[in-house]
Design a protein around this nucleic acid. Sequence first.
DNA 1: CATCGAAGTTGAAACCTTTCAATTCCGAGT
DNA 2: ACTCGGAATTGAAAGGTTTCAACTTCGATG
Lengths: 343, 343
Amino acid sequence: MPHRDLGARSASVKDVAAAAGVSLGTVSNVLNRPDRVSPETREKVQRAMLDLGFVRNESARQLRAGSSRTLAYVMLDAANPFFTDVASGIDEAAESADLSLVLCNSRNSAERELSHLALLEQQRVQGILVTPVDPESPMLDEVARRGTPVVVVDRTRADQSFCSVAVDDVLGGRLAAEHLIDRGHTRIAYVGGPSHLGQFRDRLQGAREAIAAAGMPEDSLNLVETAAMTVVEGREAGSRLAGLPARRRPTAAFCVNDLLALGLLQHAITSGVRVPEELAIVGYDDIEFAAAAAVPLTSVRQPRQLLGRTAAELVLDEATNAEHTHRQVLFTPELVARSSTLA
Amino acid sequence: MPHRDLGARSASVKDVAAAAGVSLGTVSNVLNRPDRVSPETREKVQRAMLDLGFVRNESARQLRAGSSRTLAYVMLDAANPFFTDVASGIDEAAESADLSLVLCNSRNSAERELSHLALLEQQRVQGILVTPVDPESPMLDEVARRGTPVVVVDRTRADQSFCSVAVDDVLGGRLAAEHLIDRGHTRIAYVGGPSHLGQFRDRLQGAREAIAAAGMPEDSLNLVETAAMTVVEGREAGSRLAGLPARRRPTAAFCVNDLLALGLLQHAITSGVRVPEELAIVGYDDIEFAAAAAVPLTSVRQPRQLLGRTAAELVLDEATNAEHTHRQVLFTPELVARSSTLA
DNA sequence: CATCGAAGTTGAAACCTTTCAATTCCGAGT
DNA sequence: ACTCGGAATTGAAAGGTTTCAACTTCGATG
């Protein structure tokens, strides 16, 4: 025996009105302006709704009202703690504005990102926040041009076609490298990749600036390119470093993110390399795990929640304020020194 | 100068039809059954759509068609890698069925969960997957009764009012404890909490069964209750254990999840307790980080992706198959032994 | 040359809610 | 007794899409 009647259409306002013996408009008033309805009528209508299991049809509501009550964040990778923290910042702001947040995960695929964006646009969400696979994707411009507010999160673009919220990666790279230079390191590995990523390039530039400012030769920085920014790749990078002859081997490593740094750390520990005495390590992002690692990790902290909250505020401004102008917000990262660089 | 015209209504099929010099029905055909339309007409219509920046109004589509093309997962905590892995399993299945998945994060709040459920129901999503704050919440029954397929993920309920997919926690607890008993431990800490959580209770029961089966006294198990299942709480539990007199101090700990276990591990390492020689540790979930920890963690693995995929299949069956009957799927966990218990 | 069928196109109806001008009702004020 | 004003209620219209029966065109068949 089938469990529920798939054919049964759920009750509409009309059904409720009939059951309660009132007009359709009154039912709508109970839903939207309960104070305009006399207590007895309201009671009657609410009882009818309950009896019939009435559920407001959001599509019809939205069609008529023209607006939805949701915000969307298209994440690059839901498995990366960095992005879930950004999402929770967005969520906070959405909640204050009395909007629901839905999350979509593009899992690093441009195709999935595209189909999420298309659907969200068709759903007429209030606004879309997105950390794009490729910030130059023309789809972003199209969506924005057609009228859905779009804010780019943790990425930037050369032109200023929309609002964006990011953290100064060049500065972050500089801070990390300066910290290592201050501690006397002269051979520093730069671990990360793939090298076409904006983050890789910007943080590298910052590191190079620090090297130059210290009057050190350019080749003080030793590039170790990885295929992805994961723990596994970090371990792999560790074994590549270990393979170098001792006199050329870096005494410090700056990793483009914490996952790489943690992998590198793990490799060091299991192969008996002392951290930080023989190898100092700096990560990036300061995810919760950085502080909780076996050797607490020095890392460049990004204001993740703030990033999310700000992005949400920008998108809301664009959605509601006719005077809105696009802004590119750039936050300042901060170095958090822990045992992985402090003897 | 405001950037875009907030007042401009976006183009509708009617506008497109007028611009292309065809009827409304033809535009709809181009959208939904392109093969029914002659190539020239199709071309003309598509060009008009492009020119006008036409975006199909999903609310209207859904209102008329009656069905949405999305599935939703209401997660308990998006910051926990366990749940994001479950979500990715769901995503896979959704993608094969050509549905979009949206994620909602209740962040451990019953209230947020409720409002997400309500909105999703109003949106007439194809189905709702949920890891509820409280599996006994009557809202779940109501939603299901009113006709939206609901599947409970990683939780179960006494009655069988809907489909659920979970992992045998009692067995998992037994496996973990047996492993420690096999390795000769006779004083074992059970670390977790709060104690009203089903997982805490079930895994504890399994551990007790193992103790009993081995003919050991009940008090071989030493309960260490925590306020939450986080890394920080794990460290805290570590210092509580360290405070015990050596002869009563457990030589092994079974933690209700990996985050606790990693916190405990971190405490051990920084306070010079050797793992596993002085303290063996077993975690639960086998999140990616368990294997990547400074001392790779023995853990009870749950088939996370499979959990998600199966849940998605169940909800789809319920949504499309009139013969659907509710099922409670229970997967079997598996112990993965690593250095944290192997000398 | 008449007929038929296939292919392409049309336009009205339906989906469900919200809005708003119009209407009814009722008690208070004169 | 009458008018007035406010509160409560009504019902038609609008919003954009899809569906479908009906219609047109056109080439092929008898």
